[in-house]
């Protein structure tokens, strides 16, 4: 049996016929072709599939697709606006926070969800926000630096 899903993904109104057993991450990757959202475990243990739903960072692999009904979703593809990278993306690049890049979209979404709500996070708040995003390459140091630096820039530009 299928259901009709209506939601907004990256500012675009979506209406789709879905199998409710499908996970949201599969809908995003395979139906919307937004492959920037990654699958690292499909059990909510790594954060590679993190998206922002109604302002909160969530694991899209753990959500039934219909949980998206009526929500506003942002994936990594929706972060760059009008050909301009978001400050967080720029700082990830500038500060060496990216290596293999597989965790990066999830890291950026978690960081963005944090900074959208809390423009002046403490180091501990950054660590909490990123605690569910595993990175095996960087050791996290440069990722934290990137988030702190992006926060500072965002405050200055505001």
């Amino acid at each position: 049996m299928s259901e009709i899903l209506k939601c907004i993904i990256n500012d675009e109104e979506i209406e789709a016929c879905v199998d409710p057993e499908m996970r949201l991450v599969d809908f995003i990757r395979e139906r919307m072709h937004l492959t920037g959202t990654k699958i690292g475990c499909k059990k909510g243990e790594c954060g590679a599939c993190t998206i922002i739903m109604d302002g909160n960072a969530v694991n899209s692999c753990l959500l039934p697709v219909m949980r998206a009904e009526g929500t506003v979703i942002q994936t990594i593809e929706g972060v760059e606006k009008d050909g301009r990278l978001h400050v967080i993306q720029e700082e990830f690049i500038n500060k060496g926070a990216i290596q293999c890049g597989f965790c990066t979209p999830g890291m950026i979404m978690s960081s963005k969800a944090l900074l959208d709500k809390n423009p002046s996070p403490t180091t501990d708040e950054v660590k909490e926000a990123l605690g569910g995003n595993i990175c095996r390459c960087t050791g996290y140091k440069k990722i934290e630096e990137a988030v702190m630096s992006a926060a500072k820039r965002l405050r200055e530009e505001a």
Binding site: T50, A129, G132
Partner: peptide
């Protein structure tokens, strides 16, 4: 409550 899983999990 703030210790379960990760922030993404706690958000759901």
């Amino acid at each position: 409550a703030g210790t379960v899983g990760s922030l993404q999990i706690r958000n759901a």
